[in-house]
Design a protein around this nucleic acid. Structure first.
Lengths: 211, 211
DNA sequence: CGAATTATATATCGATCGATGCAGAAATCA
DNA sequence: TGATTTCTGCATCGATCGATATATAATTCG
């Protein structure tokens, strides 16, 4: 059913697998440093097939960003969304980030593809805006969860939701850079621990139990 | 005296000013995204003059990194080194980072050139190692100051110096990314405040006075 | 099997990359 | 001023960039 009627030769390579390889390469090297030759090599196809299947390098990068979001973001945000309290959500977010960004959960490149993406520095302003939006979405998620916690009475209404959200975002962003420099999962988890101490102090929870 | 004897035409352009412009461009766009044509334009010289004065693009980048360290790092590390206590040192480091990384002190690009440098992804492994060393040096400075604080009795010997150092480094690294995304100085200062609360909780100082 | 259709591989496009050769312009010393 | 030295602008180098035209190989339907 996915192939309508189509006479003639069907697609010969696995588009999803090729996209995954492209995603990992963009993830590792960044947009500008990744050439079409690099891509065709890891994707196992020729340049014409790449352009037939994905349109252009920019469009391929956009698809890679979506592939990344669909397949890897849950490793960091999964427990965040299912947690019962904002504190558990944030702690899970940071601890799962520590594990994921160091490639300890599955074999993936170190650091966050969205966080480390420095596209948009040059002419590719559209792509730069895209990853910038991705980073802004993370802050929105954090602040929304904090707002809910205030509404539910978990957090006092006096706290600065924006500042706390920015803080968590800052720590997680910094984790990506440290992960790229070789910091271990344990080191990043220790960073998350210290960050949560700041959380407790900020929110008035001083024993660290989170309740 | 700077010009030894030299017959013939002396240097016609200001090498230092040209280097500053090159530094700002590398700082803003990164190594790979900056072309020779971009450089010659902002430096106000031709390509042959650039190569005669700096040797190559890589060597120019190395000089730009040194220029950056010599001229801008003090804005972030100055009060860190002169502070009487480790807590004041770290707090100054983060607050001065908030101001500097948002371009509020002087007109400079947002974010830290060393932190945001994503060189080394590709064949330029030497440059990547260079900026990686720069980032490691920041961690060393932080840990050395914490170690001194333990030796002087400011901090208990039980604290995890490495974890605290990594934490501060993480926050400052994350600040660069947020600054690039347009976060304001006030936002980054609020982040620094929350981070210091984590510091106080970690080190047993619960009133935030630091003494 | 033959006709029709489609993906692939080879080769190459113009543009730009980092880097230079060359000749003229400019400045200093005798 | 003239000889010397050095820097600069123009043109261009080979290599590689992203992207394609062309032609062959491969597959399906009639």
């Amino acid at each position: 059913m996915t192939t309508p009627a189509g006479r003639g030769r069907p697609r010969a390579f696995d588009r999803e697998a090729a996209l995954e390889q492209a995603t990992r390469l963009f993830w590792t090297k960044g947009y500008e440093a990744t050439s079409i030759a690099d891509l065709t090599e890891v994707m196992g196809i020729g340049a014409p097939s790449l352009y037939a299947a994905f349109g252009s390098k920019e469009k391929l990068y956009v698809e890679a960003l979506h592939y990344y979001g669909d397949n890897y973001q849950a490793m960091v945000w999964g427990r965040f969304f299912s947690a019962g309290t904002a504190r558990e959500a944030v702690e899970s977010f940071l601890l799962d980030s520590a594990a994921t960004l160091t490639g300890c959960v599955v074999d993936i490149p170190r650091g966050c593809m969205v966080t480390l993406s420095s596209v948009g520095s040059e002419g590719h302003s559209e792509l730069g805006e895209l990853v910038r939006i991705g980073r802004a979405a993370a802050l929105d998620r954090l602040e929304a969860r904090l707002g809910r916690a205030v509404a539910e009475g978990e957090l006092p209404a006096s706290i600065d939701i924006h500042a706390l959200g920015r803080f968590v975002q800052t720590v997680q962003s910094g984790m990506s850079i440290l992960a790229r420099d070789g910091a271990s999962r344990a080191e990043l988890e220790a960073v998350a621990d210290v960050a949560m101490l700041g959380w407790d102090a900020r929110t008035g929870n001083r024993d660290g139990t989170g309740t």
